[in-house]
Amino acid sequence: NQASVVANTLIPINTALTLVMMRSEVVTPVGIPAEDIPRLVSMTVNRAVPLGTTLMPDMVKGYA
């Protein structure tokens, strides 16, 4: 099973992502692959992402 990116904290809308905000976890449904974490750093989220939420491609500006 592939690990996905999961919010390690509440990420407010329009926040630039940092490494400490994200962790990898095997979850269903599958979200952004964990190997993309380095690429996500400094990208911003377009909605509030609660703790434990899987990051989906449409949640990160410029990812999809």
Rank of each mutant, 00 (worst) to 15 (best):
G31C: 03
N8G: 08
V6F: 02
A34S: 13
D36M: 12
N14E: 09
T15E: 10
M56R: 08
P57V: 06
S4N: 02
A16Q: 15
D58I: 12
V30N: 13
T54K: 04
M43F: 13
S24A: 13
N8S: 14
A48E: 11
R23V: 09
V20I: 12
T28A: 10
E35L: 09
S24Y: 14
M21I: 03
P33W: 07
E25W: 05
I13D: 13
I32G: 00
K61Q: 11
L17Q: 00
V45H: 00
S4L: 02
D58E: 13
K61T: 15
D58K: 09
M59Y: 13
V41T: 10
T44Q: 15
V6E: 01
L17I: 13
P29F: 04
M22Q: 00
E25P: 01
E25K: 06
V30A: 10
E25G: 09
L10D: 11
V41M: 11
A48V: 15
T44P: 06
I11A: 01
G62Y: 10
S4F: 02
V41Y: 06
P38I: 09
E35W: 08
L10K: 12
G31H: 02
T15C: 05
N1I: 15
T9E: 14
A64K: 15
R23H: 05
V60P: 01
I11V: 07
D58R: 07
N1W: 10
S4R: 01
K61G: 07
M43G: 03
Q2G: 15
Q2I: 15
A3E: 13
G62I: 04
K61Y: 13
V5G: 01
A34F: 06
P12L: 11
P38D: 08
V60G: 01
N1Q: 14
Y63E: 03
V41D: 03
P57M: 09
L51P: 12
N14L: 06
P12W: 03
T54N: 02
T18V: 07
A3L: 11
V20C: 08
T9V: 10
A64T: 14
P33I: 13
I37H: 02
D36G: 05
N14P: 00
V27P: 00
I37Y: 03
P12T: 12
V30R: 04
A7E: 01
N14H: 15
Q2N: 13
L19C: 13
I11C: 02
T54V: 14
G62V: 04
S4Y: 03
A64D: 15
S42M: 15
T9M: 14
N46W: 08
M59T: 06
S42Y: 10
T9R: 14
D58M: 08
V45E: 00
A7K: 02
D58N: 12
T18L: 07
L19V: 10
A64V: 11
P50L: 12
V45W: 00
I13N: 14
T28C: 15
A3Y: 10
L55H: 00
P29K: 05
M59N: 05
N1V: 15
T28N: 10
A48R: 12
I37R: 08
Q2Y: 11
M22P: 00
L51K: 08
V26M: 09
P50R: 08
I13Q: 09
D36W: 06
T53Y: 10
M59E: 03
N14W: 11
N1C: 05
V26Y: 09
L55S: 00
D36K: 07
N14F: 12
V41S: 04
